[in-house]
Structures are given as structure tokens and as C-alpha cells.
Design a protein around this nucleic acid. Sequence first.
DNA 1: ATGAGTATTCGACATTGTCGAATGTGCTTC
DNA 2: GAAGCACATTCGACAATGTCGAATACTCAT
Lengths: 260, 260
Amino acid sequence: MLGTVIQAIDRAARVLAALQGSRHLGISELGVILQLPPSTVHGIVKSLQEHGLVVKEPHGQRYMLGPTLLQLSNVYLDTLDVRARAMRWTGDLSERTGLAVRLGVEFFDQVIVIHHEPRPDGTRQMPETGLTIPAHASALGKVLLAYRPAFLQSLLTKVPLRSLTGETLVEPELLEKALVDVVEKGYAVEDEEAVLGEASVAVPVADRDGEAVAAIAVVLPASQQPLADSAMTLLREAARNVSRELGSPTWPPVVATTDD
Amino acid sequence: MLGTVIQAIDRAARVLAALQGSRHLGISELGVILQLPPSTVHGIVKSLQEHGLVVKEPHGQRYMLGPTLLQLSNVYLDTLDVRARAMRWTGDLSERTGLAVRLGVEFFDQVIVIHHEPRPDGTRQMPETGLTIPAHASALGKVLLAYRPAFLQSLLTKVPLRSLTGETLVEPELLEKALVDVVEKGYAVEDEEAVLGEASVAVPVADRDGEAVAAIAVVLPASQQPLADSAMTLLREAARNVSRELGSPTWPPVVATTDD
DNA sequence: ATGAGTATTCGACATTGTCGAATGTGCTTC
DNA sequence: GAAGCACATTCGACAATGTCGAATACTCAT
């Protein structure tokens, strides 16, 4: 059925995606973005509104995403076995390294953070759960690309790769070379490729098939590169512990075969 | 158009709602829940899957909610003016009271937490953003019911009201009486109505129309009722500060007229 | 109050979604 | 490994639904 989706549902999802991008949009604006007549867009938006998936903004005519998405996403997070098992270990990791920790999974050509432990220094930090980062520009993403060749293949159908900073690897050949390195070393480094001034190191989490299904990263200021050996050890231990709880026979994982 | 939604989109939303309830469901199970043939359900699910709104579980045939919901909900939270403005004040409130704080808005017959400040005592607490609570069983909800009569009217079309604990108010007359009290006092109390052992006190947040659009609650153990006067003052100040930033001409808000 | 821009309603009809039948897949048991 | 059962997925006919242009209503700025 892939390739033959229900058009009305596809269009509804594209309305949500447009609102994700631009936040507040009127019917006519959505029509322009989606290349659809206003009356068609109106029908879609009203149908989504009925379920709280979109709402009209409080003082105007434009629409925005709605609260049902928040409720559903809470359930999504609750359903993730890897997240539930990682909570304790990522918490420990953050406490013992003094660093923020991210747990990420594959999300189209990106990685999405499904759990975030802020730096345990008492400062106020923006919650990161739900943030998406291009896979090739993040340590989390590079780990998943390295251990999941199908993910890399899928990504490479979408060249040109986006450049976030001057440090982002956008040449496919350079990226592939870097990913070989990741598998050899068992971890990936991100050095200002996604966010200036920010570095991170990520390692894979393996499931019961022994394949990488997630990645754990610690985040540090770029000026404090490279990561201390002690933190590296704690990072690897956390990932190994999560992997063991998921039933993984081995750690680090095997590189998945591409003909899954 | 309310009442004449696009059926395919309505069905897609109902698939999401079914997965919200039961977490993991196969096509046949969804068919039973939705009263639709498996092949129809399959088309819907595949269309949602294309956009990451549902995924197949890692080792099985059943489906679950997908990561796109997390990304979209992050944007939803980011879009909320009241939340952006409340972040600082709820943070202060939590610090100064030593209590957990919730910011909630109306969500069908419930209230949904759009921001959560954990108790600032360094203990690990479950994140509550995205949690929904029946409106009549929570201080947050009772404030909104009291100041937004249309919300109460909508709720009362859905009797019988659900009982969560032996303390929950389920008689419409008792609830309405309690809500009159809320407006007189300017705050609502929740005393083990939603969760045994848990109490909270909530006050309204007003927007530029001078109407309640959200509520802020502090959460305390039921054994520590009633809330200290000092904390009560801090709670009211936080709500007033958020309201002022939203452009409210007055605080506490007026009770909205029912013919909005 | 007026006008422009936009949202919403309405209804004809073509296209799309639906759904029953057939086929394929996965899992359990022997 | 084979068989059987439960369930998922594919296929295609056709009816119902979604689409979209025209008309109407609403909102906002001047």
C-alpha cells in the first residue's frame, strides 16, 4: 500500500506538517502551500479541528496545531520500551557526568529526541524531548546511520544534505567515511555540526535482535572537547545497560544487514 | 461544517484515539473497536504510517502511535503564548513554594497540562506535560469550569461524570455549587479527587479579553492541606503576572458570558 | 460605513474511498 | 519441517464521499 495512501488522510497530515513549519496559517495560506482550493482546505481543517488536532488561534482567523497532539505524543512516549528502560540509566549518566543526556531514535531523515536529561546543575534548560535534528549533523544521528545502513540509504536518496553550520558534513562520501569510523570506534562525535558551540558524543543502544534501535548522547560545550575518558566509560555503560534490558545479545550492536 | 466532517479524516483521528487508549493494536482489533472492515482499517493505518503518525511495533504485527506526534506536539507547546509567558512565573512559583506547579488549559471535557514544574527538591519526578485529567476532578479544571460557563455547559452534556476516587464530585448540582464557591474565593481546591493522597490549589489566568484561558495550580500532599497563606499569595501573584503579560485588563478574570 | 481580503457554505459530479473476496504472512503446535 | 489458524494485506468494482467552483458571509482596516 505504500505509495497508494488515502488522499484525504495524506492531505490532513500535510496540513499538520504545514502548521508544524509555519505555526499559524490561514485557510488561504494553507491553500497556497498545499496547492489546494480554500474550500477543500477548509473541510480538512474543520475535520482536524473536531478532534482537537488543530485549533483556531485565540484572537484571529488563523489556525495552529491543537492539544490532542500533546496528549497523543504523551502516549507515544509512554509506549516506547527503549525509553522506559533508558530513563534510569540516562538519569544516572547525567548525574555522574554532570552533562545533559539525549536519547534519540530514527525519524525519517532526522533523529528525534525521545528523552532528555538536563544538565544536573540546577540551571533552567529548555526541554529537548521532541526536538528533531538532521541525522547527518548529530552524533545521535550518525550512530544510527552507521549501524542502520537502511537509514543511511534512505538519507542518501535525499541529497543534497542540509548544512546547519560551516562544520556540517554534507558530502555523501565524507559522511560515509565518517560512519565507517563510527563503527570502528563504537561511538560518534558531533562537533558544532548542528549547533555552534555544542558538541556531543553518542553510542548505540541495541535491542533483542542485536541491532541498533536508539542512541544515547552526552552533550558538552565544544570548548571542552574531547570527552573525558571517565564520561566515555559511563556513556558506554549506560548504553550497554539499556541494551541488556532490551534483551540484546551483544554490545556494541552488529551493523544491520541492508536487506531487512 | 461542524457535524459534517470528512469521514476519512474522522476515521483516521479515531484510529489515533484508539491507539491512545490501548497503546498496541492489530488491524483486526482496530476493526472491532471502530466497527470497520479490516481492509478499510488497513488503508487508514498505512496512510498514517506514511507520515510517521503510527508505526508498527518493533517485533510484531500491531501498530502504535508514531514519532511525528511528538514533533508536532513540541510545536504545539511552542505556539502557546500563555505557556511561553508562564514559564518564568511558574518556575519562580515552584522555587519559592517548594511545590510542583501545573499550567493547564481546557481540553474537551478534561484539562491538559501544558507546562509542569517539578518540585524543586532534586528528586526524580515523572514529567506531567501532556497529562489529561477530567475537568471536574481537578483544581485546574474546576477553575476553568467556574470561569468559562461554556466549558461547564459542554461538560454537563456528558453526564454521568466520571468518578476517579471516592472523593470525586460527580453530582452536577454539587459540582455547580462548588464552582460558585470557586468564583467567590477566586481559587479552586482539589482534595484527593483525582489522585489519592494528592491535593492542589488552582487560580485562573486571564487573557486580553479579561477571560480565563488557563489555570495555574500548585500540588501538595493531601496531608499538608490547607495551602499556606504565603504559598497562596505567591500562586495568585504568579497568575496575575502571567495575566498581565497576556494583556489582561483585570485579575481575577470575569466569568465569561455564555453566549460567546 | 465601505471595501478588500479571506473564511465558509452549498451542491453537482467525478474521483476516490470503501469493503468483500481472495491471497499472503506469521506464529503456534505437532 | 509441515499444517493449520488467525490475521494482515492486496485487489478491483462501484457507490459514496470528497472535491472544488461559485456564491455568500465575515472580519478587519481605513
